[in-house]
């Protein structure tokens, strides 16, 4: 089995906002009504995180559990935990009406770090989101210039962002350029 590599092999852009292509993690999409406690309990039990409410994301270490829609959740884990999480979820879900899909290789994951205002400014330039009011603990699926993406702030001073792997270079270049130049905030 070949070793997984991230889309841009750990590329980094230094500047007022540091942009880093993160090493591969396990990303699992679970589709199924999140009003069904059998599904949310399976997610909580496998991840060790409480299932967040509408547009929420729970974070602990490298683990993330996100509300992506009324019938979609995203679980991010260290890559080594992929197989155990997939089988654990399938087992815990039992006969619940749900689908578990390994999306680990489908997306690129970036971490942006820097001064809070500079970070918010960078995102505000590329997404139609009111970054003045964007709170930690919320995930926003949106448009990043011409591509779809999602981001959240695990804590002040850090933004994590995902997009499809096929557009990773576009996202990296877009963010790197947005990070320099005139400031709005």
């Amino acid at each position: 089995m070949s070793d997984p590599v991230s889309a841009l092999a750990g590329k980094v852009s230094e500047g007022p906002v540091r942009i880093e292509d993160l090493a591969p993690r396990a990303m699992i999409t679970v589709r199924g009504k999140l009003s069904d406690t059998a599904i949310t309990e399976a997610l909580a039990s496998v991840s060790g995180l409480a299932m967040p409410g509408q547009r929420g994301i729970a974070a602990e270490g490298e683990k993330r559990l996100a509300w992506m829609g009324p019938d979609e959740a995203l679980l991010i884990l260290p890559r080594a935990g992929l197989d155990a999480a997939l089988s654990g979820l399938t087992e815990k879900l039992g006969s619940a009406h749900a689908l578990v899909a390994d999306m680990s290789d489908a997306r690129a994951l970036f971490r942006l770090t820097g001064e809070d205002a500079a970070l918010r400014d960078t995102i505000a330039k590329v997404a139609p989101v009111d970054m003045m009011r964007f709170p930690t603990g919320e995930i926003r699926r949106t448009r990043l210039a011409q591509i779809a993406g999602a981001f959240w702030m695990p804590q002040e001073g850090t933004v994590e962002l995902v997009c499809f792997r096929s557009v990773a270079q576009y996202a990296f270049d877009l963010l790197s350029q947005a990070a320099v130049g005139p400031r709005v905030f």
């Binding site: 829609g69 009324p70 139609p128 699926r141």
Partner: peptide
């Protein structure tokens, strides 16, 4: 009404 987000039309 599905996710509660308020955004401008290019997201839709």
């Amino acid at each position: 009404p599905c996710c509660g987000v308020t955004a401008e039309e290019t997201e839709f």
